[in-house]
Design a binder for these strands. Structure first.
Length: 792
DNA sequence: GAGTTTGAAACT
DNA sequence: CAGTTTCAAACTC
């Protein structure tokens, strides 16, 4: 497109800009210029979008200009590596902006601090929501902008700005932007003035909003995000969907809105992005190459295209959510996590509707989601929202186990906020499960992760939070040698949350890669080579994911299914809940006797099941034979956890629900929601360094899927069980019983590895082959166990 | 840290 | 669907 030229032009200014403060000042005056270039590039460059994240990072509330600039710049700059970084710097560089930025930073710092210790959940939630909204909005705006270069200028200043920007008209925009920035900054600092300004903005926004909502809702949103006030106004007016926002906004809005952006600015996200951004063009090329390499069989070209456009947005969104948390590491983690979850996030968004700040956004997102599941996620707007959730979900899942120990309060607070949103979504999906609800409730109540952790139900949340924290910690660790860090984490056991891959040939685009398999981006700690599993290569990653999912819809579903846990917990045994879990497909171990991490079941901290085809199974968590793990065994490794595990193993059948998850190709989704349930899974891992990702993911996925389940009839079986389990603990117990019974009933064994397939349930499962494994388990387990149940 | 083992994932 | 190859983690030294 035209972008190359523009990019080149921009590039020079950028360099100057960087070098000379004067340039910066000029830029501040006429930020539009950079923007101009952006529109063109944005249209197709995913990179542009990628740059967006940086924008968020540095979107300081202070200056709309900057934010816009950044956005645009980012878009335009996509090709330019340094640009993104510059953007981040710009805010600080510009005199006016700098002042605001400094304040913002201060505020952000405060915010961070606040968050860390005991940020009120509400605040966190608000922030998260706002962030999510932010992310969502921005991405959408970008998309739309891209999509409609000639986007009509709306009456509202904001829109006009956008339009002007789109048109590449710098002059008009600048003044407005300045004002906006001023307002914003004021808001960030003081509400009173900010409020007034905000109101004005709102008015503007409102005009646009009302008139545009239908048509250019995105644009409006776009604008709003930049303007904290505008954003607020939007939220309050149109959306309010979440009374939360309204309620919260009054109290914290300032902080939240301004704070988040600030956070972003502070956050190294920009740096991260920068890293990513470094080779935007190259990356693109790489991504394309990767796609080829991957064979991107299908990865629906269209999808890819969409991804290209949308991905960046998603990235941004990803970043944004991350930005919520002060720590740069978080951002990283978020980015990483976001991959899969983006998709999930959207779905969540649907579910989150209530949670989500803006109903509008949600609605749009929902629509999107309904139609485009995965693809949709790519869309910026939805992405942002999703991102938050998803990102969290993945990481959390992965981290959850280890994270518990790590537990960073800061992150926790953030995560909590996320959790809140997520849980809500999940809850909506899962609806019934009390466990989740408790979690949600607990979350708010328990500001501290620890508290959360303390409560089993809370555990899931805590896990998430802990994961996030762990993740952060991991990042920190990352700074040092990745491998060492990794080992530390592993050794530490808890720290494991952040896994790091060491892929050399797979480019981290295959399931071989733990990160990729977990739906998270690789991060610094990873020692992978030629890694494409990075936000920069989102399109590639997504495409690859699609491909893999096309082959195996369950490929990204959590390997360990705990779904039952959550449900069952609600029903009866909250305590037991954790235990139930099974490996989705079962292991195929021949030499490890399922006593080593080679065994996915063992690694996941779950007992082997009928599905397993292992030979000489001695899985301490539970043998496929049905023999329950001996106490000694449990003691040996996990003791407490093992106990739970045993229970879990038995419960695994319930986990079948995951199958439903599996069904959902959009596995990504599963990650986040399930987390809540996850806690159970963690147990096993806790003993060891690593928390099996699979478990974490599984847990999350299970929950998530459960939601899907409801949506999808296919899962029916598992669902019904879950539902039942959820509704009535009795059913849940059934699985447990089965498990337990299984042990006693040792006879249950399906000794034959093939047994999985043999399992009669298949017929029932029949709906989807991939699923059958899980279902099979259930069925099998049921038959075998029934006798046992009586015991209980 | 290097090399081996292991089993999942990918491929045929 | 089964067999083989590839891959990266897990493990050992």
């Amino acid at each position: 497109m035209d972008t190359p030229e523009k990019s080149s032009q921009i590039a020079t200014p950028l360099s100057k800009f960087e070098d000379s403060p004067v340039f910066n000042y000029i830029n501040s005056l006429s930020p539009i210029k950079p923007v101009k270039s952006l529109p063109v590039t944005q249209t197709f460059n995913s990179l542009n979008f990628a740059s967006l994240p940086s924008i968020f990072t540095s979107p300081h509330v202070t200056s709309h200009k900057e934010t816009r600039f950044f956005r645009r710049n980012n878009c335009s700059d996509l090709s330019k590596p340094g640009f993104s970084s510059e953007n981040g710097n710009k805010a600080s560089t510009n005199d006016d902006i700098a002042a605001d930025a400094s304040q913002l930073y201060d505020n952000s710092a405060e915010l961070q601090e606040n968050f860390d210790p005991a940020v009120s959940i509400a605040e966190v939630a608000v922030e998260a929501s706002s962030d999510s909204k932010f992310a969502i909005e921005l991405p959408r705006a970008l998309k739309y902008d891209c999509g409609s270069p000639g986007s009509k200028p709306t009456p509202c200043g904001i829109e006009t700005n956008c339009a002007s920007e789109l048109a590449s008209t710098s002059a008009p925009v600048v003044p407005f932007v300045q004002e906006a920035s001023d307002n914003v900054s004021s808001e960030g600092q003081v509400n009173s003035q900010g409020m007034c300004q905000m109101e004005q903005k709102k008015e503007m926004a409102g005009c646009d909003w009302e008139s545009l909502i239908s048509d250019t809702a995105d644009l409006l949103i776009f604008n709003f995000p930049n303007d904290s006030g505008a954003f607020k106004g939007l939220i309050q007016k149109s959306l309010d969907p979440g009374a939360r926002y309204t309620s919260v906004s009054p109290g914290f809005p300032q902080i939240n809105f301004s704070g988040e952006p600030r956070m972003q600015a502070i956050d190294p996200v920009g740096s991260d992005q920068q890293h990513e951004m470094e080779d935007p063009s190259t990356q693109l090329g790489e991504s394309s190459i990767v796609n080829e390499i991957n064979r991107a069989q299908d990865s629906p070209n269209d999808d890819l295209d969409e991804c290209l456009t949308c991905d960046p947005c998603e990235k941004v969104g990803m970043n944004i959510p991350v930005s919520c948390k002060p720590i740069s590491n978080l951002h990283r983690g978020m980015l990483r996590r976001c991959l899969d979850f983006e998709l999930v996030a959207r779905r969540k968004n649907l579910g989150d509707g209530s949670n989500c700040s803006s109903s509008m956004i949600l609605q749009s997102d929902e629509k999107m989601t309904t139609e485009d599941k995965q693809l949709v996620p790519l869309k910026p707007s939805s992405d942002s929202s999703r991102q938050i959730l998803p990102g969290i979900g993945l990481h959390l899942n992965a981290l959850a186990i280890s994270s518990q120990d790590n537990k960073n309060i800061r992150i926790d607070s953030l995560s909590n906020g996320r959790y809140l949103s997520l849980p809500g979504s999940t809850a909506s999906f899962h609806s019934p499960k009390t466990t989740e609800d408790p979690l949600h409730e607990s979350l708010p109540s328990a500001t501290n992760e620890r508290d959360m952790v303390a409560v089993e139900n809370g555990v899931s949340l805590a896990e998430d939070a802990s994961q996030t924290s762990a993740y952060l910690a991991g990042e920190e660790y990352n700074q040092s040698s990745p491998k060492k860090k990794r080992r530390r984490l592993e050794n530490g056991g808890e720290g494991d949350a952040c896994k790091r891959c060491n892929c050399k040939k797979s480019k981290c685009l295959k399931l071989y890669c733990e990160c990729f398999a977990a739906g998270v981006y690789c991060i610094e700690p990873c020692s992978c080579q030629d890694c494409f599993n990075k936000p920069i290569h989102e399109d590639t990653v997504l495409a690859t994911r699609k491909q893999i999912e096309s082959r195996n819809p369950l490929a990204f579903a959590p390997k360990v299914i705990r779904s039952a846990d959550c449900l069952p917990e609600l029903g009866e045994d909250s305590s037991k809940t954790p235990a139930s879990a099974r490996h989705k497909r079962g292991c195929n171990c021949k030499k490890s006797s399922c006593l080593k991490k080679y065994c996915e079941c063992f690694q996941g901290g779950v007992g082997c099941s009928i599905n397993c085809r292992c030979e000489g199974c001695k899985n301490t968590f539970g043998r496929k034979d049905g023999s329950a793990p001996t106490e000694t065994e449990c003691e040996a490794e996990e003791e407490m956890e093992t106990c739970e595990k045993s229970v879990v193993d038995k419960h695994l059948q319930t986990t079948e629900i995951p199958n439903s998850e599996e069904q959902n190709p959009s596995s990504a989704l599963p990650t986040t929601p399930l987390r809540l349930c996850r806690p159970l899974v963690q147990l096993p891992f806790s003993s060891k360094c690593k928390p099996p990702r699979s478990l974490l993911t599984i847990g999350s996925s299970s929950g998530f899927y459960t939601g899907h389940k409801y949506g999808k009839p296919n899962i029916l079986r598992s669902q019904p069980k879950f539902e039942k389990g959820l509704q009535t603990g009795s059913e849940d117990e059934m699985p447990e019983i089965l498990q337990e019974n299984s042990t006693p009933s040792s006879g249950v064994k399906t000794s034959s590895p093939n047994s999985k397939r043999v399992s009669p349930p298949n017929t029932i499962l029949g709906s989807s082959p991939s699923r059958r494994s899980g279902r099979k388990l259930i069925l099998q387990s049921i038959p075998s166990f029934p006798s046992l149940t009586p015991q209980h």
